[in-house]
Simulated scan of single mutants.
Amino acid sequence: RVVGGSEARSHSWPSQISLQYYSGGSWHHTCGGSLIQRNWVMTAAHCVDRTMTFRVVAGEHNLSTNEGSEQVLGVSKIIVHPYWNSNNVAAGYDIALLRLSSSATLNSYVQLAVLPQAGTVLPNNYPCYITGWGLTPNGQLSNVLLQAYLPVVDYQICSSSSYWGNTVKQTMVCAGGDGVRSGCQGDSGGPLHCAVNGQYQVHGVTSFVSGNGCNVQRKPTVFTRVSAYTSWISSVSGGF
């Protein structure tokens, strides 16, 4: 996934989930997501805006083996942000909440994500990590959860003409863009983790990368900025 990333220590990101769809008699990983309540998952709108049967797997590390820590949870309701427009990802609002048909059991493998305070904007070069099972340089999904260090690129830089220009909005977070490490397809919907006051918080939901490739210089990975949507998240999921 995470291009230029390395394998994460097993279960070191316990709020990360695998969003999977059913096709041809089996389940396939399509996106990441974050467990924000025992029965709610936060992901990207573009991951769920087509009609499919989805499930969530929490406590996952290696997609290809049963490690005994997984919890498979059905999805009973998909709530996409009302302003999301699948024909205009650059408008923003690439966020969705999934209500689960049963509640996850919290343990050392499965934990709730901590969300940032409303309105929090991290400064340029703030250290963060992206995690996911997305496409690796050989074009395959990774079996194991990968992570990569992606420092924040602030809005002023990210929206400049040599970066993303007006494609990027203030409701987004940019990170990376060194031409080596980035997110990629299959990481979508997954988290950007940033430590604030000694605690990792999920500040971004992976939204898009450059059409020219996943790790293009001056085209950082773009995330939905979670702190711009905290009141919507609260109103839908009934608080954190």
Rank of each mutant, 00 (worst) to 15 (best):
H193Q: 14
N125Q: 11
M172I: 02
G132I: 04
Y200P: 12
W133P: 15
V196E: 07
T120R: 13
V205Q: 10
P137W: 11
G165R: 05
I130P: 06
V209H: 04
S160L: 07
F208M: 10
Y126L: 08
G204Q: 02
G139P: 15
G132P: 14
W133S: 12
G189R: 02
N138H: 06
Y126N: 09
S188H: 05
V121H: 09
G183I: 01
Y163D: 00
P123Y: 04
S159D: 10
V121W: 13
T131E: 02
Q170A: 10
H193F: 11
P151D: 08
A113F: 00
M172C: 03
I157L: 10
K169C: 00
N197I: 00
P116E: 02
G165N: 06
T131G: 07
V168D: 05
Q111F: 05
Q201S: 12
A148R: 06
L122G: 03
L141M: 07
G211H: 15
G165E: 03
V173E: 00
Y163F: 14
Y155F: 15
V153Q: 04
T206F: 05
Q140M: 04
P151A: 05
S182R: 05
W164N: 08
A148L: 02
V144G: 10
N197T: 09
V173H: 11
T206G: 12
G190Q: 09
R181P: 13
V114D: 09
N138A: 15
C174K: 04
C194M: 07
G139H: 06
Q140A: 09
V180C: 03
F208W: 15
Q147S: 08
Y200L: 12
L115R: 07
N124V: 01
Q140W: 07
P116R: 08
G204I: 06
M172N: 10
N143I: 00
N125T: 13
N166M: 00
N197P: 12
W133E: 06
G132E: 02
S161Q: 13
D154K: 15
P116F: 11
V114A: 12
V152C: 03
F208Y: 15
L192M: 11
G132F: 00
V168K: 02
G134W: 01
R181Y: 05
W164R: 07
V202L: 10
C174S: 06
G134V: 03
P127Q: 12
L192V: 05
Q156H: 03
P191D: 09
W164T: 03
D178T: 05
Q111M: 00
Q111I: 02
G177V: 10
S182M: 14
G134T: 00
D154P: 15
G139R: 07
P191Y: 04
R181A: 14
Q140P: 09
M172L: 01
Y126V: 04
G134Y: 01
W133L: 04
V144E: 08
C184E: 00
C174E: 09
Y126R: 14
Q140F: 06
Q147W: 00
P191C: 10
V152A: 04
P151C: 05
L112R: 07
L112G: 07
P123Q: 08
Q185N: 14
S161N: 14
A113W: 06
N124R: 11
Q147L: 06
